[in-house]
Design a binder for these strands. Structure first.
Lengths: 242, 242
DNA sequence: CTTCTATTCTATAGATCCATAGAATAACAA
DNA sequence: TTGTTATTCTATGGATCTATAGAATAGAAG
């Protein structure tokens, strides 16, 4: 009881610091920005577009994230690029996301309503994909924007960004089974790709989770350009943020 | 661009759910409550006392935590006991705490100002403690409240709650080297114990982190009563929250 | 130097959050 | 029944957060 002059002050100071992280992730748009930045560095304008916000508003949210030191910036000419301040921030985002997935049936319901409706077949998990990767009858399709593919992808995967898929679908071998992947279990790119592929007559499944989880699991990663089914991309790579 | 009617709605819905977690941990007192609940179930009154808040205010914060489903309650007579809704919540608290420790020099400074001033010697890490546990010349001291000790402690550790330490210090073998531990790297109990022990003429160090981290590392855990240097506790076990 | 573009800054009104006060409830005891 | 204790509910003023509008800055291009 006696002689502990600073105990409460120390505690208050520490929890105050911890709460800075909490305040930073107390707004859905800021979490979305962190999710986007887990994919790599982005300019303000690109982030604003992807998160469906005005540039001014996006800049204000990014300011909050920067002041909480979860993100850092780099200036290049007139543009400012934001990135995660540390890989640990991405890990923290994962643990936040996973806890929400654990605790909230709502998350499960939203995912089911949207994702399962587009899954004709069960999703493929990583182990299954690894064990079948060699047998040739399977095409692994990366439907993220080209620049994310080049920054890192599953070895052997073919890059067809979702925006290009409609036009380039015909170039895929028609008998093949396609496994599409994107940014993670809550990313809408792969489910949308499945819908297009299914309409085009393909047998398509999606990888249960996406590239960030693949890398996190310590599995092999390839970078730069890679085998393409159709070597002449018909349109400029474009960020697809529906 | 076309044919994606619900993409944005899905994203907004998901990030909204993720942000529920963020909002729950956007206030330092709520984080402190989660930290306390990581130690075990507690009544509102005990929590209010430990976090230095009024009962009414504590109840309001607990309500927020309950509505975000991070904690659950159990009623026993006229008292309500709160507990974490899941072990995953404790894991999430750890990752929040560790990220803050990584990112904020302030945390390090606060810890140093308070803790290092009370460390005469370097803290002991888990490996070192394990390798020296058998050699007899070392006493492992659990200075948490008795009830936390009984819920789980390091095998072979002696329980002397901080509040009792002054009175029971004399019963410790005077030549022994003491290693004190408490609730974790930011808990003030062990540093305070070191100060008392040092004044009493003991050679005392503290375990680098506390019991929650010990358990989390998968190391052996003992429960219930255990060897006590002084088998007649001089005062009722009491929650020590300076 | 002027124009253009990307971003940030300032001010503001509306919404939300927070601590406290005072009252209400619920379980138990006398 | 009447207290008594632990907790929650309701109302309120003040603080903080958020989105937007409009202006300012800074770099690149003409």
């Amino acid at each position: 009881m006696a002689a502990v002059p600073t105990g409460r002050l120390v505690k208050d100071g520490l929890y105050e610091q911890f709460a800075r992280i909490g305040k930073a992730v107390a707004h859905p748009k800021r979490i979305e920005l962190l999710d986007l930045l887990c994919q790599g560095e982005r300019s303000v304008e690109v982030l604003a577009d992807a998160a469906a916000m005005t540039v001014v508003n996006t800049s204000a949210h990014l300011r909050v994230l920067r002041e909480s030191r979860l993100v850092a910036t780099r200036k290049e000419g007139t543009r400012v690029f934001y990135r995660l301040a540390d890989d640990a921030v991405c890990e923290f985002f994962f643990s936040l996301r996973d806890l929400a997935g654990d605790r909230y049936a709502e998350v499960d319901r939203i995912v089911r309503d949207f994702f399962d409706a587009r899954d004709e077949l069960e999703p493929v998990n990583r182990d299954e994909l690894l064990s079948r990767a060699g047998d040739g009858g399977i095409i692994v399709l990366d439907v993220r924007p080209r620049e994310e593919y080049e920054a890192g992808h599953i070895p052997g995967a073919v890059s067809i960004p979702l925006a290009d898929l409609k036009g380039r679908m015909a170039s895929l071998p028609h008998r093949a089974e396609v496994v599409a992947y994107c940014r993670g279990p809550y990313c809408v790119l792969a489910p949308q790709a499945l819908e297009l592929l299914r309409r085009g007559g393909f047998t398509a499944r999606r990888l249960e989770d996406g590239f960030p989880e693949w890398r996190r699991a310590g599995l092999p990663v390839a970078t730069g350009e890679s085998p393409s089914v159709d070597p002449h991309p018909p349109s400029t790579p474009e960020l697809t943020g529906p």
